[in-house]
Amino acid sequence: MLDRIEDLLERQRKPVIRRGEDDLVFDSPMWSDFFGPNWLAMVLYDRGRFWIEQGSDGRILRYDLRSLHGFVFCLFGAAMFFAGGLVEGVAEGLKFAAIAFGWLYGMNMLSAWARIPRAIRKAVDRL
């Protein structure tokens, strides 16, 4: 199962930095492939871990993904909207920044939350 996840990560341009018997870890800073394809399901995530647990119903694949660099990038974008909104006052600047951050980060996360589980299931279920 982890071999299939490793293939998925390779297709997603997420290099595996550690592979154990029951887990694997990838680390891919956002700036390492900044001008790469941005339509990939896992483009927003810069670090993650996949592992297999033995449950009562059999083996279960678990994962933990982190998007710190995407979060910081979206904060920077929101700060630019805040600076632009300061012409109208601090309250307007904060409103513009909140809307920009919600749109930039929120829409990226919603898209990832819908696409990543589907990509993982497809990678694991293929024969």
Results as ranks from 00 to 15, higher is better:
119 A>P: 03
34 F>T: 08
58 G>M: 08
47 R>N: 10
122 K>P: 00
44 L>I: 04
55 G>I: 10
22 D>A: 15
75 L>S: 10
117 P>Q: 02
67 S>E: 09
4 R>D: 11
43 V>C: 01
70 G>C: 04
70 G>L: 03
114 A>V: 13
69 H>T: 07
20 G>W: 03
126 R>G: 01
60 I>M: 10
14 K>I: 04
35 F>I: 02
58 G>I: 08
51 W>F: 12
37 P>I: 05
20 G>M: 04
10 E>Q: 10
87 V>W: 01
31 W>C: 06
4 R>F: 03
72 V>N: 09
71 F>G: 08
53 E>M: 09
109 M>C: 05
37 P>L: 09
23 D>V: 02
127 L>Y: 00
31 W>I: 14
103 W>D: 01
67 S>I: 08
21 E>F: 09
87 V>Q: 01
40 L>N: 03
97 A>W: 09
117 P>G: 01
17 I>L: 08
31 W>Y: 14
119 A>M: 00
8 L>M: 05
10 E>C: 02
117 P>C: 01
89 G>M: 06
120 I>C: 00
22 D>G: 12
106 G>P: 07
116 I>E: 08
18 R>L: 14
53 E>C: 07
47 R>G: 06
34 F>L: 15
66 R>F: 13
90 V>P: 03
3 D>G: 10
61 L>E: 10
57 D>Y: 13
65 L>T: 11
14 K>E: 03
43 V>T: 09
116 I>F: 04
